[in-house]
Amino acid sequence: MAELKDRLQSDLTAAMKSRDDVRTRTLRSVLTAISTEEASGQSARELGDEDVLRVLTREAKKRREAAEAFEEGGRTDQAAAERAEGDVLADYLPEQLGDEELRGLVSAVITETGAEGPKAMGQVMKQVTPRVAGRAEGSRVAAEVKRQLTA
């Protein structure tokens, strides 16, 4: 069912065999986050690829934010470690949308929905978010939607 989860598990085994500490640590952490997500909620369930992708995106964002915080605090060694883990996670995420692609997607949704003004932001975001599906950070999407609705 979850091909992405199976890939993560087999890659973890390969990383352990090759003694790749960064990849091993990162994949263990992500698989733990996936297991936690599966166990939480009303009923335990196995996550599908879309849900696993959501967890991966969230974990990558955590690494990015942690790296920035460590960098600001002058802890460049820790920031580099967080970035290295983020690079490992990037291998499992879909290719990110470029600015031009994101602009076009948001513009198309605004045209389809007939949305006008900042009050329509929620309506547009509701339509854009599934189409983006892990290919652009939510804050980046929101900024573009806001920009186009206020222009």
Rank of each mutant, 00 (worst) to 15 (best):
I34M: 09
R147T: 04
T57C: 07
V145N: 03
G134W: 12
R83N: 01
E71N: 00
G134Q: 07
E46K: 13
P118R: 08
Q42I: 11
A39K: 12
M125A: 04
D99A: 15
E65W: 03
S10F: 14
D99T: 15
S40Y: 06
R58C: 06
V30E: 01
T76D: 08
E68P: 04
T26F: 00
S18W: 08
L31S: 05
R140D: 02
Y92P: 02
K119Y: 11
A90I: 03
V128T: 06
M1G: 13
V55A: 08
M121A: 15
G104M: 05
A81S: 05
K17G: 07
M1C: 07
G86M: 00
I110P: 00
D49I: 03
S40V: 02
A151R: 11
A90T: 12
R7F: 10
D51Y: 08
T150K: 06
V106N: 03
K146Y: 13
A80Y: 00
P94S: 08
R64M: 06
D6N: 15
S139L: 09
L31M: 11
A67E: 00
E72A: 14
G104R: 12
L47R: 08
S29Q: 06
E65L: 12
L93S: 03
A151C: 05
A44V: 14
T24H: 10
L47H: 10
R83W: 01
G73K: 04
A80K: 04
T13D: 04
D99V: 15
G86A: 02
V141E: 03
L97Q: 03
S35D: 10
T111C: 07
Q148I: 00
R140W: 00
T36C: 02
T24V: 11
R64G: 01
V124I: 12
E68G: 10
S107N: 07
F70S: 04
T32Y: 14
S107A: 14
A69L: 11
L8D: 05
E59Q: 15
D11L: 10
V55T: 05
D99F: 12
T32D: 10
F70W: 07
L53V: 06
R131G: 13
V88G: 09
A90P: 00
A66L: 07
L53R: 12
S139A: 12
I34Q: 08
D21G: 13
V132P: 03
A60L: 00
D77T: 07
L4P: 05
D51W: 12
G114A: 07
A136T: 08
K61N: 09
G134L: 09
A108F: 14
L53K: 09
G73Y: 04
L27D: 01
D6I: 12
P94A: 12
T26N: 00
Q42F: 15
D77R: 13
